Amino acid sequence: MESAASRLAAVRANIERMCKPSRRKPEDITLIAVSKTHPVETIEPLLEAGQRVFGENRVQEAQEKWPALSEAYPDVELHLIGQLQSNKAEDAVELFDYIHSLDRPSLLKALAKAMDKSGKSVPCFVQVNIGDEDQKGGCAIAELPDFLAKVRAADIPIAGLMCIPPADIEPAPFFALLYKLAEDNGIEGLSMGMSGDYETAVQLGATHIRVGTALFGPRQKTAP
């Protein structure tokens, strides 16, 4: 079995390779290790190998795993990459350094209130429903300029735009569209690309990639 250190080195090498044609710098791309569903004992080897940026999907799961890990590794940066319920806004602001799923006015209101109460300002990526899929979260493309104006008016720092392209379709056009939307709206950050397509995302301007399987290996099958 590959070690965590070798998997991490391979992903970083791929990032560097994909940066060369577009003359990008690998250090300008943040690699987020998606640790959702992975227990502490599988996260620690990546921490020991030097990875410091991690992503979780659920507030409750992160609350169970990360306080102790963050105490042992105080320079860890934690990103919430999954959908966020408005009633979990306070917990999310307390625990996370970045939020990738700001996508609707009700959540905007809850996060603004939570940040004001805590005195902590958490940069947020605005999630865009890039494939216009009913089952996915994200702000509709047509509503994006108006929603971004509301985020700015609420004094929430905008880290960038985020998307999850439709499954089983070539992702490049969706990444290119997100890049254009960011450019049109004066935004630099782009959270896009996962284990199966992060190399394409890097080519098309991603600043943050969310990689799970390529770093942690295939998920362990549980016994029936």
Score class of each variant (00 low, 15 high):
His208Thr: 11
Ala89Lys: 13
Leu178Asp: 01
Ser86Thr: 06
Val211Tyr: 04
Ala68Gln: 15
Asn185Glu: 04
Glu94Arg: 14
Ile32Pro: 03
Lys120Pro: 02
Gly212Thr: 14
Ala13Thr: 05
Gln85His: 08
Arg219Val: 03
Glu90Lys: 15
Glu188Pro: 08
Glu16Ser: 13
Ile130Gln: 04
Gln127Cys: 10
Val93Cys: 02
Ala154Ser: 13
Arg104Phe: 01
Ile141Gln: 09
Ile158Lys: 00
Ile141Leu: 08
Tyr98His: 07
Ser121Ala: 09
Cys19Tyr: 09
Leu177Lys: 15
Phe175Gly: 02
Ile187Arg: 07
Leu148Glu: 00
Val151Met: 01
Thr222Tyr: 13
Glu188Ala: 15
Phe216Leu: 09
Glu133Gly: 13
Arg104Ala: 02
Asp146Glu: 14
Ser6Gly: 07
Lys109Tyr: 08
His100Cys: 02
Ala201Ile: 15
Glu170Arg: 10
Leu107Thr: 12
Gln135Pro: 09
Ala153Gly: 06
Leu215Gln: 01
Gly82Gln: 03
Ala182Trp: 03
Gln51Arg: 13
Lys120Glu: 04
Asp116Tyr: 01
Lys150Asn: 00
Ile156Asp: 07
Gln83Asp: 12
Leu8Pro: 08
Arg52Thr: 05
Ile29Ser: 10
Cys139Gly: 10
Arg219Trp: 12
Gln220Ala: 14
Glu64Thr: 14
Ala4His: 03
Ala68Glu: 15
Pro21Thr: 06
Gly55Glu: 11
Gln60Ile: 13
Gln60Arg: 00
Ala114His: 07
Pro165Glu: 04
Val93Met: 03
Lys88Ala: 06
Leu178Thr: 07
Gly119Trp: 11
His100Phe: 00
Ala92Ser: 04
Glu48Met: 11
Met194Trp: 01
Met115Glu: 15
Ala114Asn: 05
Glu61Ser: 03
Ile81Tyr: 13
Glu2Val: 10
Val53Thr: 14
Ala110Asn: 11
Lys117Glu: 11
Asn87Lys: 07
Pro173Gly: 02
Ala5Phe: 03
Glu77Tyr: 04
Pro173Tyr: 02
Ile130Leu: 11
Ile15Ser: 12
Pro74Gln: 08
Lys25Glu: 15
Glu90Asp: 15
Lys113Ala: 12
Ile99Gly: 00
Ile187Cys: 05
Val40Tyr: 05
Phe54Glu: 10
Val76Ser: 01
Phe174Cys: 06
Asp146Phe: 03
Lys120Ser: 00
Lys221Val: 08
Glu77Asn: 02
Thr213His: 09
Glu56Val: 00
Gln83Leu: 00
Ala5Asp: 06
Met194Tyr: 03
Ser35Val: 00
Lys65Asn: 09
Gly186His: 14
Lys180Val: 06
Lys113Ile: 00
Ala5Cys: 04
Thr213Asn: 07
Ala10Asp: 12
Ile29Cys: 06
Val211Pro: 03
Leu108Val: 04
Ala72Met: 06
Gly196Arg: 12
Gly82Val: 00
Leu111Gln: 08
Asn129Phe: 09
Trp66Cys: 10
Ala142Arg: 03
Pro67Gly: 04
Gly189Asp: 02
Gly160His: 01
Ala112Tyr: 07
Met115Thr: 09
Leu8Ile: 01
Ala201Thr: 11
Glu188Ser: 15
Ala68Asp: 14
Leu95Gly: 11
Lys36Ile: 12
Ile187His: 08
Ser191Asn: 06
Thr213Pro: 05
Gln51Glu: 13
Ala206Glu: 08
